[in-house]
Design a protein around this nucleic acid. Structure first.
Lengths: 176, 176
DNA sequence: TCGTGTTGGTTGTCGCAACAACTTGTTGCA
DNA sequence: TGCAACAAGTTGTTGCGACAACCAACACGA
């Protein structure tokens, strides 16, 4: 006979309700972000985030490995994305002078121009679907809650180590 | 001359910090859920959610269109997924008797068995990465915050209209 | 210096999702 | 009725992400 003992701690009503909503949120939010950016500037949210990371980096340049960590991408994925962005003239890649295995990526003027064009609509979307729905208190609570969960999901803080994204206006002002 | 006026309400420090964390969360959470379910029962989280929706439906049966709405899927996507699940013997499809355009999907005994096998590990993952990181207060706050955002993202409450997912033990007990 | 192990990056293959086109069936209206 | 508009699903094509295999370059001990 197998052991039929069920020692699983099932979710109670409140846990289940909160979890269902969180799952729905994580299901819907990426689609909304992708949709707006694709429509307006033909960029996925991932591509946008990668360009923003480059724009706020020193010299607008970053190692592929570092950029992959910052954007939660595997290196193969980033490599494919970088090739597409380079074909569109939005970034440039060149071998790292100090380590000839490595590749550095730089955002071009065209890339800066595109994210400056994209940023207002993106921020508008973020406000419309998320921030404007929350009170100042809830904003703080969200910060704490997401921080607590990220302590489990991303203990090394790879994703959140990035510089502030929108607090200083367009990328040209922030990264120049 | 183009109008260079910048009337965008850029994010302040607190908004930006909370947003960065929320984005990181929505980026990482789906991967964690998929990974555990794929490893343990060769099911994506989407497939798991679809099976759970069927298991908790009356007669364990649902219209394809309804199921698509409940799982935030397009009908083509659900059609492909349903074909794969049917090939694995986890669901069955048959024409709706009252509307011959429509198709009904039913979860099989094998399907029920698989989600009963999957549920404990899935709940464990949910606890480990999310729920156990939050205080009871934060759980309530998360419920409210996600609810507020979903009011914008999903005003018709298509995704959250589902029955409670884990509050009553295995699917066989819940759906029988 | 040589050889082994490791790191950085690219390329190829497979599976899944988005989108469009198409088939079939239903509804509504003349 | 008969015909036009619409609804429900399926199928085919395209593009992206995951994974594995591969190549190039560095590090370090013998």
């Amino acid at each position: 006979m197998t052991d039929m003992t069920d020692d699983t701690r099932w979710l109670d009503t409140e846990e289940s309700a909160a979890w269902v909503r969180l799952v729905a949120l994580t299901e819907l939010l990426p689609g909304v972000l992708d949709q707006q950016l694709l429509r307006d500037v033909q960029l996925t949210h991932f591509e946008y985030a990668a360009l923003m990371a480059l724009a706020s980096a020193p010299d607008r340049t970053m190692r592929m490995t570092t950029l992959a960590a910052r954007t939660n991408a595997t290196l193969p994925r980033l490599s494919h994305v970088a090739r597409r962005l380079e074909e569109r003239g939005l970034i440039r890649r060149f071998p790292c002078p100090t380590d000839r295995r490595a590749t550095n990526a730089t955002i071009t003027e065209a890339g800066i121009g595109l994210i400056d064009e994209a940023a207002p609509g993106h921020v508008e979307t973020v406000r419309q679907y998320v921030l404007d729905a929350l009170s100042p208190e809830q904003l703080k609570q969200l910060y704490e809650i997401a921080g607590a969960v990220l302590g489990r999901l991303d203990p090394d803080e790879r994703l959140t180590a990035t510089a502030c994204q929108f607090s200083e206006g367009p990328a040209i002002a922030r990264a120049g």
